[in-house]
Design a protein around this nucleic acid. Structure first.
Lengths: 339, 339
DNA sequence: TACATTCAGGAAAACCTTTTCGGATTCTTT
DNA sequence: AAAGAATCCGAAAAGGTTTTCCTGAATGTA
């Protein structure tokens, strides 16, 4: 067998036995030497280290995991990979784990619960130490139930309050955005947003109206304008708005694409931004904000932070020191040229 | 120990022993029953299956992998996760593997070769069966060298021709785009593109000029206009172009953002698209193409296909039936309203 | 010199599963 | 009824690593 594994003169996947043999010690001693355990003579240790280096030995993490009952891996199940929200969360999590010695198993369930179940089985079979479930929207989702490993729900929270969930604080995001416009002296503020079925749209609307209420201002037209999350909708809704409410001096757009649409229509209509109307988006999607004329102010959801926090919470849950519940993470206003 | 693992009345991570004990058979028989091996009485089999179901037994893939020498996992090292090119490739690969029983380890190296080396070690330690290395650009990159597992380089090819690399055929992409404009009767075609250091920019330019040469046409202004991959550059370059070459009737833009910039400038200048000028982008980034007025024609890089192909090639390499070299995958023109 | 103490290293068990091989039971056949 | 065949099941080893416990040697002390 060892003969078969030869390649370029060296064994392909050297084991601790090989190292021990070369260093002329037992596997036990080799293990201790490599792991910095005591009860091994300094001179022997260097001999083992040299042997390991020579064979380019890499310890088999599977065997270690089998023994320790800890695999040093976590599973990350995402709802939709192509959605742009998963990515920064994934990056944040990968970042937080990567600096330690954890590795991330990635699975894309495509919003399909069958596939999710399938991936779940695969991950549990691989004995991951924990699971992060990333939603594609901030709408809450059914819990995975009682699993043998801890789970953290990120972006899309679990309906079960005993689970650990992390979401951006969209109410605060809306409030902050509204406060920003008010602080800029705007008194006739409209809100054009996306699909009413999205919790994010409703939460932001709640935050906005509560701030405006406090300031004694009413949303232009009396209510938020729901539609789709597209530039197209931003253009048409804005065109209608300008016609019906020429007094408008501020537009809060449900995302950056809608804001881009609004800006286009305003430009066509000759309304100066931000002099006559201030415009603000949500999500702070860089390619949209920095491509806009003028550069678009927006509210950043701090998704990398959310991802990193999810990783930390998962660690805590693995350690056993975790507090269940849904945690809402702050968002931050990014002021550019449209406000 | 088993007492400590209790939770909700059931053992936390039941092993095959537990199943065997419950079904009152040996572990050997339990294994055979669960894996559909023969030489096990039907009645015994159902008893074992029932026991496994009762304990919600999930076989430990680590132990299986340790025994079989195959782990059923592959590593995916990506250059930059936030770049939008990695994602579709990742999706394609995840898709191709997910349908089998492979799982994907994801690592983000952030374009840092130290981090890449670190992740590489982690993956090799976990005895992945193979590796896919996804570049952040189509520029070629140094090989990882001789590893104990097969490697496929996707998007960013290896400099070593003995490696297996997959890239979109940007020369063909440029040629197809040019052919499309020519077929639309355009004779004064300009090319505004991004950073000259990108192989993609150069390759596409090569494809474009070769087609135009064959048609006896020269690029407007004599050469491609290199800049950055941004809307901003699309706007300024187009403004300059219209001034210097009012005869222009077609613009090939290096990516969809540049194309968006071009469309904005054309709109401001009152040039009708596509009547007076045809505009075309590259990458077919949906949020940009469908948000544009009118909807932007573009060239799709077929990145999901590339990702799936990478997964397939990796399988072949694992099986030992692989042909080294750099394979160029076709792109496809997506015609919308700007051409 | 006899004894206690320290230190270095090794043998073996444990983690969980699969597979091979041999033993035991039942059924068929003469 | 005895021999042979057909089934079914279990014991044990393998895979790579870590840890516990033990042995043996060397050093220090009386």
């Amino acid at each position: 067998m060892t003969e078969l594994q030869e390649r370029g003169g060296r064994v392909k996947n050297p084991t601790l036995r090989d190292v021990a043999r070369l260093a002329d010690v037992s596997v036990a001693t080799a293990s201790k030497a490599l792991n910095g355990r005591n009860h091994v003579h300094p001179e022997t240790r260097t001999r083992v280290l040299e042997a390991a280096r020579l064979l380019s030995f890499t310890p088999n993490t599977l065997a270690q995991g089998l023994l320790a009952g800890q695999t040093g891996t976590v599973g990350l199940i995402t709802g939709d990979l192509d959605g742009r929200f998963s990515i920064p969360i994934l990056m944040g999590a990968e970042d937080a784990f990567g600096t330690g010695k954890m590795s991330v198993f990635l699975c894309d369930a495509r919003g399909d619960s069958i596939r999710e179940q399938y991936h779940l089985q695969a991950l549990l079979g691989r004995r991951v130490d924990g699971l992060i479930v990333v939603g594609s929207t901030t709408n809450s989702r059914p819990s995975l139930g009682d699993l043998p490993v801890p789970v953290v729900y990120a972006y899309g929270p679990s309906t079960d309050p005993n689970d650990i969930s992390l979401v951006p604080d969209n109410v605060q995001a809306g409030a902050d955005a509204a406060r920003h416009l008010v602080s800029r002296g705007r008194r006739h503020i409209a809100h054009i947003t996306g699909d009413v079925d999205y919790a994010a749209a409703q939460d932001r609307t709640r935050g906005i109206t509560s701030v405006l209420d406090d300031a004694g201002i009413e949303l232009v037209g009396g209510e938020a304008r729901y539609g789709t999350w597209s530039e197209e909708w931003g253009r048409t809704a804005t065109a209608r708005l300008l016609e019906e409410h020429p007094e408008t001096d501020g537009i809060l757009c449900g995302n950056d694409q809608i804001a881009r649409g609004a800006l286009d229509t305003l430009r066509d209509a000759g309304w100066d931004v931000p002099t006559r109307v201030a415009v603000m988006g949500f999500d702070n999607w860089e390619v949209f904000t920095s491509g806009a004329r003028p550069h678009l102010s927006s509210v950043d959801m701090n998704l990398e932070v959310l991802g990193r926090t999810a990783a930390r919470r998962l660690f805590e849950a693995i350690e056993g020191t975790a507090t269940p519940g849904t945690e809402e993470l702050p968002c931050r206003v990014v002021v550019r040229e449209t406000t």
